[in-house]
Every structure is written in structure tokens, then in C-alpha cells.
């Protein structure tokens, strides 16, 4: 049973997430969007979207960091006040995100709300799964102390075993059901990724930080079919402002 839950299911989820995600990107990139409803409902969104996105992003980063660098994480946290502070911060962020997603759900509920009109069945499934996931995460932090530590010896080796293609669920099989549920639901979120609006996560436009402000697209390269350009006419020095001369 644990082989199926903790080895087969995660692989299926990851393969589908990558495979379907890429397929969707290549065949129907138009469907990649944050499908924002801010135009339709502006006020409640602030109290939902901001806590949710900031809370969940920081929590996820902590999970990923602990997974990638278990040894480093362990030595940073130790067993003293730093661990305690870290756990308190994590719990607070989880509740922060939970409040956010409850508001995000609530703003879509009223039948007269304009946000409801643009809510798909997949949105409801995703919202519900994410809410449960955040709440179980908070419950794990509360009832199964000290997660930041046992994560390093239980979850991290398991996740590494999946990545290195030598799957081994031995470290997670004996864990309490609540924790196991949290793990499985995590992979359920990954499974949902290509079938929902969650695809916007991988489209975070980091390159906006350094791209030129102006984007000019040429059907043909205006300089290509010319004789060599004299030095004085060569492409002007690129300031942060100059155009990206892209070719379609």
C-alpha cells in the first residue's frame, strides 16, 4: 500500500504535471493565464490574494530549502530557540495563508458575485484542496512537533529517493496518518497543476527584472539585408531603455 501511495502516486503526479503541462503549453498556450478576476471584484481580493500568495510562497520556499539542503537546515535550526521561532513563524504564515484562501473562497460564493460568474469547477476543486492542504499543514505543525526537524530525516530522504529514481518509502511509511495525508495531498496539488489555473505559478515573469522596457518585433530584420553597416551606424549602445530588437 505504501508503495502505491508514496512511490507510484508521486511519480504519476509528477509525470502528468510535467507532461500535460508541457503539452498544454505547446498546443494551447493561450490557456496559460492567471485568469485574474480582479477587474470584477477588487476589494475582497486584496484581503484574500495578498495573504494567500505571500504566505504560501514563503512556506513553500521553506519546504524546498529544507528538502534541498537538509543538513544545512538542521545545523541552522538546532534544537534551541531558533527552532522554536522558526516553527512559530511557519505556523503564523500557514494561518495567514489559510485566512487568505478562506477569503478567496468566500468572495466567490455569493450567487450574485461577479467573481462567481468566472469560477470554473476546477477552480472550486483547487481552492478546496489548497485550503485542506494549508489546514493539515498547520495541524501537523501544531500536533506533530517539531516538523522542521523530522522533515529532514523522514521526508527529505524519501523525496531524494524519488528524484534519484531509487524510490524508497521506508522513512515515511511509519509516520502518523495526518502527516502522510499532508504529503499525499501535496502531490495531489502537483497533479492538479496542469489541469487548473495553477499553471500561472511557473510563468512568474522574473525576466522582467532585466529586459529592456520597450519591445519592438520585426517581421524582417531591418539590418540584415543591407550592406555592412558603418561603425557610426552600428547598433546603438543598449541602455536599460533601448528596445529589444526581436525577430518574429
Amino acid at each position: 500500500m505504501s508503495t502505491f501511495l508514496f512511490i507510484v502516486f508521486p511519480y504519476v503526479a509528477i509525470i502528468l504535471a510535467v507532461g500535460v503541462g508541457l503539452y498544454r503549453y505547446w498546443t494551447n498556450r493561450f490557456s496559460y493565464s492567471s485568469v485574474s478576476s480582479q477587474l470584477l471584484e477588487n476589494t475582497k481580493l486584496f484581503w484574500g490574494s495578498v495573504p494567500w500568495h505571500y504566505g504560501i510562497t514563503l512556506i513553500l520556499l521553506a519546504h524546498v530549502f529544507a528538502w534541498l539542503f537538509p543538513g544545512l537546515t538542521g545545523s541552522i535550526l538546532g534544537f534551541g530557540p531558533r527552532l522554536f521561532a522558526f516553527e512559530v513563524a511557519g505556523l503564523a504564515l500557514a494561518l495567514f495563508a489559510a485566512v487568505g484562501i478562506v477569503i478567496l473562497i468566500a468572495r466567490r460564493l455569493p450567487t450574485l458575485s461577479r467573481a462567481r460568474a468566472v469560477t470554473s469547477p476546477m477552480d472550486w476543486i483547487l481552492l478546496f484542496v489548497l485550503l485542506v492542504q494549508v489546514l493539515t499543514g498547520a495541524a501537523v505543525a501544531l500536533f506533530d512537533r517539531w516538523g522542521s526537524h523530522w522533515f529532514l530525516s523522514a521526508a527529505a530522504p524519501w523525496l531524494w529517493s524519488l528524484v534519484s529514481l531509487r524510490p524508497d518509502a521506508a522513512t515515511v511509511a511509519p509516520l502518523p496518518p495526518l502527516i502522510q495525508f499532508h504529503f499525499l495531498l501535496g502531490f495531489a496539488v502537483i497533479l492538479l497543476f496542469p489541469f487548473t489555473r495553477l499553471v500561472h505559478v511557473v510563468m512568474l515573469p522574473i525576466h522582467y527584472l532585466w529586459r529592456p522596457y520597450q519591445v519592438v518585433v520585426w517581421y524582417r530584420d531591418p539590418r540584415r539585408r543591407l550592406a555592412p553597416v558603418p561603425a557610426s551606424q552600428a547598433a546603438p549602445a543598449k541602455s536599460h531603455f533601448s528596445s529589444a530588437e526581436l525577430k518574429e
Binding site: 493561450f30 493565464s33 485568469v35 480582479q38 477587474l39 515573469p205 519591445v215 519592438v216 518585433v217 517581421y219
Partner: peptide, 24 residues
């Protein structure tokens, strides 16, 4: 997202519907 661009040949400003991610 870098979805909006100016066409070099005629200066028309367009939104690439493929690249637009709805960041607003």
C-alpha cells in the same frame, strides 16, 4: 510577461494573446 510589443515595420502596438498572462 513581455507580451505587448510594437511592430517594427508600422509601429502598431499589439498584445500577444499567447504570451499574455493576465498580470494586468
Amino acid at each position: 510577461a513581455g507580451a505587448i510589443y510594437k511592430r517594427g515595420e508600422d509601429g502598431i502596438v499589439l498584445v500577444s494573446q499567447e504570451k499574455c498572462m493576465g498580470w494586468r
